[in-house]
Computed example of a mutant assay.
Amino acid sequence: MTAHDSPVVAGSLFAERLSRGIRDRGLPLQRIKAKLQEDGLAVSVATLSYWSSGRSRPTRRTSRPIVQKLEEVLQLEPGYLVDAMPGADRMAALERIAPEELIRVAFDELGIARNPTWETLAGHQIVKVGSDRAEKGVENRDLSRATVTGQQKWALVLADCAGPIVCEETTACRLARQVDLTPDITIFEFMLDRPLEQGESVLTTQRLSYHGNGDPLFRQRYAVTENMDRLVLEVLFEDELPRKFYRTFAEDGSEEEQIVSRPVYSGLDCLQVVIDKPAPGVHGITWEW
């Protein structure tokens, strides 16, 4: 069974049909985006490009009206694209699988290494919150060191996504592929510009943005699975700061979250936590509006 034929990773029929429709119609993606916006349907050029190349798929509930409008814009038969979308029955079945198991199976089918042969020395995650209190994007900066020669790829998993998400920019690496497992879980696989030598270190950056109207965000989470020297969590607010905020931590393998007594730094437009030698588990900042 190939990744494209598997029950977890959907096939490329939608990408094939969309790319053919765009090619036959001869419209640039910017023009297609503008026509969608005329009907109040927000989608980025990057998302359209990813859909047509198969790097991501329209799995979210909000994607269906966009795909239906694409059929009209590209002068395709009604249902030509919609019928190739990941089916509702498939998505419902996937959502009944525990997220951890779903991600594990997807990693196996996609051939993604769950434990890259390098160590993360430091991590800095920046979450951006808009004036509507919804998440607008996230930026990850990681300082890593190779423990063997040849390491080049790794994966980033985002859960509870606030709408369609796109990789906008990277430094010292590039996006190899994006897989939207469910409406709430997306896997990004990144590749360094070249393989690392043993003992060599590299600082990488990935900037991701959300396209859509998400619910108000009230927390930031970062999972630590290995020894790190330092972890920095930061939240940037476009408008006002929340009225209350605190640190949280859940031990590795535990779902019980504890409030950490150490304070959260608050600036004019940001919250920050700097953690030296973070313990394995899920570290976070929670706030109340």
Rank of each mutant, 00 (worst) to 15 (best):
V138L: 01
A146T: 04
L110A: 05
G137A: 11
H124S: 02
D5I: 04
E100H: 09
R57P: 03
F14I: 12
Q178T: 10
R145D: 03
D229Q: 10
Q75C: 09
V260C: 05
P116H: 10
D160A: 09
F245I: 06
R31I: 14
L156M: 13
V179S: 05
E255G: 15
E77Y: 06
K153Q: 14
E226D: 07
S12R: 09
P99Y: 00
S63L: 13
F107E: 04
P242S: 04
P164V: 08
L102C: 01
T182D: 10
L175N: 04
I165F: 11
D269M: 07
H124L: 04
V166Q: 15
G137W: 05
D269N: 13
T225G: 09
R104K: 13
R133G: 14
M228H: 04
V148C: 06
V232I: 13
A159F: 11
M85L: 02
R243K: 08
F245T: 07
V67W: 03
I112D: 09
T225A: 12
R96E: 12
A223L: 15
K35T: 11
S63A: 08
S12K: 15
G26M: 01
S266Y: 12
T248K: 03
F249Q: 04
L76I: 02
P195Y: 06
V73Q: 11
V273T: 15
V73F: 00
H4W: 11
R61H: 10
D142I: 05
Q206W: 07
V127Q: 15
D193F: 15
P263L: 05
E226P: 02
G54L: 00
P99V: 02
L102R: 04
E101N: 12
N213A: 08
V264W: 00
M85G: 01
E77R: 06
A15L: 07
R177S: 14
T225L: 10
E119Y: 06
L74T: 03
A223N: 15
V148P: 08
T47L: 11
E101L: 11
A176H: 09
I185C: 06
I126F: 14
R55E: 15
S56L: 08
K33S: 03
D24R: 13
G281K: 08
V67E: 02
T286Q: 15
Q75M: 12
V235I: 14
G150T: 00
Q198F: 02
A88C: 10
L231S: 04
T204N: 08
L231T: 00
V67F: 05
D24G: 03
